[in-house]
Amino acid sequence: MKGIGLDIGSRTVKLVVCENGVIKMTRKEANTHDPLSLCRDMLCGIEADRIIATGYGRHLLGGYLPCETVSEIKAFARGSQAIHKPCSTVLDIGGQDTKAISLDDKGKIARFQMNDKCAAGTGRFLEVMATALGLSLEDFIEAAASAETAEPVNSMCAVFAESEVISMIARGSSRAGIALGIHQAVARRAVSLLEKVSVREDILFAGGVALNPCMRTQIEEQLGRLVIVPQDPQIVGALGCALMASEE
């Protein structure tokens, strides 16, 4: 049985095709103002028995083609188990959501926590902060990694944090130090979310922000434990959907 998993996120749309539990194809595209057209383009030419969608746009396809939906929690739990069987805790930092999921010994969702409903401390927050510092996202991450000391940032609201950053620049603080401070603040928030669901190893770090090596280091330092970042951390949710869709 062939199944398609779609994770229609706020920043990126991820597609995975699985056949009998094996990955056959993956696709990723930056989301646009017209996610439905984007999904249709991405699905073009792919035949499958079943489609399951997750992410903020999961209900979008329903009116257009037969498509089931699952929550991101279920999708990430399933995808994480498939990528790394001994995984007991999942941290996903995406475009506008952060989730911490604790799995029991059978891989079932034991508890989950999501960030406050605004995008504080998510991927989008990091992008806004990079812009506030006049840096590309890549340069922002590199600057943070190169900083010797961090300039502490307290605000987690994108609007307040931007004002805070602007006043730090005005005081002459180094951009690298501010960038590191921002990473630390986001990591602190992610760790407190993890602690709410109780942290057990192995810990899988997924979502677009897991591509950021400085964030990974900061989370590991604050958690006092190592995290596992999959080869492609962005597709974990779509993979979970594709696996569910490729099962009877």
């Binding site: 903020y56 939906t69 699952v70 929550s71 991101e72 929690i73 279920k74 959501d97 969702i109 989950f112 999501m114 406050d116 409903k117």
Partner: peptide
């Protein structure tokens, strides 16, 4: 759930509630 009287958080709430009911 922390909310107010606006409709702006309906979709984030839906994500959380759907995940709860799945569990």
């Amino acid at each position: 759930i922390e909310t107010d009287y606006s409709q702006s958080d309906v979709e984030p709430l839906r994500t959380r509630i759907e995940a709860l009911l799945e569990s």
